[in-house]
Design a protein around this nucleic acid. Structure first.
Lengths: 336, 336
DNA sequence: CTGAAAGCGCTTACAG
DNA sequence: CTGAAAGCGCTTACAG
């Protein structure tokens, strides 16, 4: 392995000067610098991260602890984080598949001493969890977390706001009998989406709302769709807490020969890639996932730069309603 | 920060003994070990990776250099790598978005000295590239690469075999006039898929094959579909080099009122999640992407363990034909 | 502007 | 089984 000593010898200077020339713009004469840079290039010298980290107390890496890596969501999230990390010259360490709190704690531990900060997305982070498993000196940001840890800022998608907006859209289109297919109650964003729906319909005259169980799976959406068709009174519009359930629900409607949006309007949440390929294409709420990752990383970089200003603030990344054919306009159908 | 010294003091032993107790099962009395472990736990001691790496010459991390992180493919690939890495107690460093060879070289450099080995997936890795930008002492494995670098093993998906199998399937179903929508020629797997198709139809009596340009985008598939419909003689079956083009082609057929598979059969490649949600669901070739990532990591671990056995071998991860409704059975239509 | 030297936290022969 | 000491490759005051 070629070390800084080899470069020093080759350039006929001390290792201290090599270090200064290659790093900051510390005082080095142009000629010396050139000689050193040439020697380093000739030798294909790359500083050993470990040695540098040991003295600078910086790893130039941040860690992302994720519950899983399955599907588009995590791919987009990592993409957003990675892009922002690159812009800051930071390496990205990912760790996933933490089935339970014990695994999450172990992953947390393993990352410690390897990164300058942590992005944590985990259903297992409950109040007190981080106090117990995370060094106080390691900056961390919580992503999509329900829990309000005293020491950590949080970044969430605006599930509540998105659900409000979609519900408002359905009402504006003239729908009055609404059904909501819920996500798993254990899931924070599922609860937020339900809350957005519930609060928006609350107290509206002439508006009825019904709720069906779901677990974010296509199958549960299919079952909910069947149940809706079997009910005494069918809704005008169905709002599924995610796209997969909306797709399942759509299958149930299609199989039964129920026209969407003619007889029942349908909306989902997430805007997964296949949403626009459905028949009819699915009206849904787009979540800016890459932006979430980007915002999380920026917040973490801020924490790393000024750890003393730690605040348990909550940043929210907005969602937007994407109108497609599955949500027919009840009021202006005639006009089309 | 709590260091090994603090633990030593707390447990009333030397740092050497702490190191031995906490690491390998080196000779330490059970009582001493217990005392040390308790002290470490009490102090929430986590060894500093940098310090350990500096002496062991191991980072316990591997790097994955990817061209991009967009979409299901990379998410699956990272997932496969991550799972396998965890099993070996290795951390995973990801780096992506390398638009050109210069960026790739920079990323390669940045990873050096931070990882024990590298998984490299990049269109910019041409013969000689690694010799120039990668230290000879750093184990590396090429993923999905066309180029045959002397120093690196390669792991590819069996695009050629998958294309052969799908073409064989179409022929077995009785299709004789086949059209192939090509992917971008600059793309290695696109060329392999084309080769599989071409070689399978070659010399078959009564079989005709035509080729259309495409670039893996949905739009290019749509254009190809339109072109096929406008041709003097329409094919019995269309094989698109990826699912997105097949989906675009399907849109063209649907818009023109051409029944799939009744009038024309259609097949894709990749088995992206939405393939099965098409109307009709798309027959395609499933690529075991997570398995590709897993195999790559395992191969790399082998390289790290025994660098002296470096061989530029090529491992191939199999594909499988997934039969769905878009490929009607020409010969037994009557029987249905 | 440049060099000699200390020190970062850890592991590992080498003694005992 | 345990400890003292050297050393991994780098950066950074401190002199000059």
């Amino acid at each position: 392995m070629v070390t800084i000593k080899d470069v020093a010898r080759e350039a006929r200077v001390s290792v201290a000067t090599v270090s200064r020339a290659l790093n900051g713009g510390a005082r080095v004469t142009p000629e010396t610098r050139t000689r050193i840079e040439r020697a380093a290039a000739r030798l294909r010298y790359v500083p050993l991260g470990a040695a540098r980290s040991l003295v600078t107390r910086r790893t130039q890496a941040i860690g992302a602890l994720l519950p899983d890596l399955f599907g588009e969501f995590f791919s987009e999230l990592i993409r957003g984080i990675d892009l922002a990390a690159r812009a800051h010259g930071l390496h990205l360490l990912v760790s996933s598949s933490h089935g339970d709190a014990g695994e999450t704690a172990a992953a947390l531990r393993a990352m410690q001493g390897r990164v300058d900060g942590l992005l944590i997305m985990s259903p297992h982070v409950e109040p007190g969890f981080l106090r117990k498993h995370l060094s106080d000196s390691l900056p961390a940001v919580l992503v999509g977390s329900a829990s309000r840890e005293r020491r950590c800022p949080r970044i969430n998608t605006d599930d509540y706001g998105g659900a409000c907006a979609m519900t408002g859209h359905l009402l504006a289109k003239g729908h009055r009998a609404l059904a909501f297919i819920e996500g798993p109650a254990a899931n924070f964003d599922a609860r937020e989406r339900r809350r957005g729906f519930a609060e928006t319909v609350a107290g509206r005259r002439g508006v009825t709302a019904s709720y069906l169980q779901g677990d974010y799976s296509e199958e549960s959406g299919f079952r909910a769709g069947r149940a809706l068709l079997a009910a005494r009174k069918r809704p005008d519009a169905v709002f599924a807490a995610n796209d997969m359930m909306a797709i399942g629900c759509l299958s149930a409607f299609n199989e039964a020969g129920v026209n969407v949006p003619g007889e029942i309007a349908l909306a989902g949440f997430d805007d997964i890639p296949m949403a626009r390929y459905m028949h009819p294409p699915l009206t849904t709420v787009r979540v800016r996932i890459a932006e979430l990752g980007h915002a999380a990383l920026e917040r973490l970089v801020g924490q790393i730069a000024t750890p003393e200003t730690t605040a348990a603030d909550l940043t929210t990344v907005p969602c937007e309603v994407v109108v497609r054919a599955s949500c027919g306009a009840r009021t202006d159908t005639a006009g089309r």
